[in-house]
Simulated scan of single mutants.
Amino acid sequence: MNYLSAKEVAEKWNISRRRVQVLCEEGRIEGAFKLSDVWVIPKDAEKPVDRRIRKKADE
């Protein structure tokens, strides 16, 4: 299995590197693990739904 860094995933998902790190820390990216001080993320990992954005009541 191929892995990517948090920086590479951030570019792929168009979000910040810090946001990717937070998602990893929260356990929201399946298969991600920390190797020394670097987050290693499976290449085929899916971007989790952003819980910070609320849906409208009528949707």
Rank of each mutant, 00 (worst) to 15 (best):
R18L: 11
K34Y: 00
V9S: 01
L35E: 13
V9F: 00
P48T: 08
E30S: 12
L23E: 02
V38F: 04
R28M: 10
G31K: 06
Y3Q: 04
R19P: 04
E59T: 04
A6P: 03
I41H: 00
V49D: 07
K7D: 05
E30W: 02
V9T: 06
F33T: 04
V38L: 10
R28L: 15
G27D: 14
L4I: 11
E46C: 14
V38R: 10
I41W: 00
R51W: 08
R28N: 12
G31Q: 12
A6E: 03
A6K: 06
A45F: 14
R51C: 03
G31S: 08
A45Y: 07
V22H: 12
F33H: 13
A32G: 10
V49M: 08
I41C: 05
K7L: 01
K43H: 14
K55N: 08
I29Y: 06
D50L: 09
V9M: 11
R19N: 13
A32D: 08
I41Q: 02
Q21M: 09
S5M: 04
S36E: 07
D37A: 05
G31M: 03
R54W: 10
Q21P: 00
N14Q: 13
A6G: 10
L23C: 11
A6C: 02
A32M: 10
D44A: 13
R54N: 12
E46D: 15
A57V: 08
N2A: 15
D44S: 14
N2V: 07
D58P: 01
A45W: 13
G27W: 14
M1V: 13
I53P: 01
K7C: 01
K7Q: 10
D58S: 14
V9D: 02
E25F: 11
R52T: 14
R52W: 07
R51F: 09
K43N: 14
L4W: 07
K34T: 03
N14E: 12
W39L: 04
V38D: 07
P48S: 02
A32F: 03
K7R: 03
L23W: 07
N2D: 15
G31A: 05
K47A: 03
